[in-house]
């Protein structure tokens, strides 16, 4: 569901599968703890994510508030998922090339 790794001080959160309400509730505490304890940048890698619910958008907002948008990047979004971020006014967080 989510795996954490660190590279050059950046926390990389790699998500996979369906990030529905149940999945987001399960990862909520763990994800927030990692985000709050990092002093570097945070990356959410969505390459293997097929679906997001609003619960995941709330986790993104939490992370943006916790570390600031300058230090928070979302990468590798599929079009369908990008569309949801755009619809929610959160597409600024996506830093795909």
């Amino acid at each position: 569901m989510v795996k954490f790794s660190e590279k050059d001080g950046t926390l990389i959160c790699t998500f996979e599968g369906l990030l529905n309400t149940v999945a987001c509730n399960e990862m909520d505490a763990d994800l927030k703890e990692h985000v709050e304890n990092t002093t570097g940048d945070v990356i959410f890698d969505l390459a293997d994510t097929d679906y997001i619910a609003s619960s995941f958008l709330r986790l993104c907002i939490f992370t943006a508030k916790a570390v600031g948008t300058e230090r928070f990047n979302i990468i590798n979004t599929k079009k369908e998922i990008y569309d949801i971020f755009e619809m929610s006014g959160l597409d600024d967080l996506i830093k795909d090339e």
Binding site: L57, C60, I61, A64, G68, M87, S88, G89, D92
Partner: peptide, 22 residues
Amino acid sequence: PDLWAPAEEKEIGGLGIYLIKQ
């Protein structure tokens, strides 16, 4: 929700209902 607010100033609530409408 205020879609134009910067991410770090966005409210957590209201997104779910907004997405149902969309």
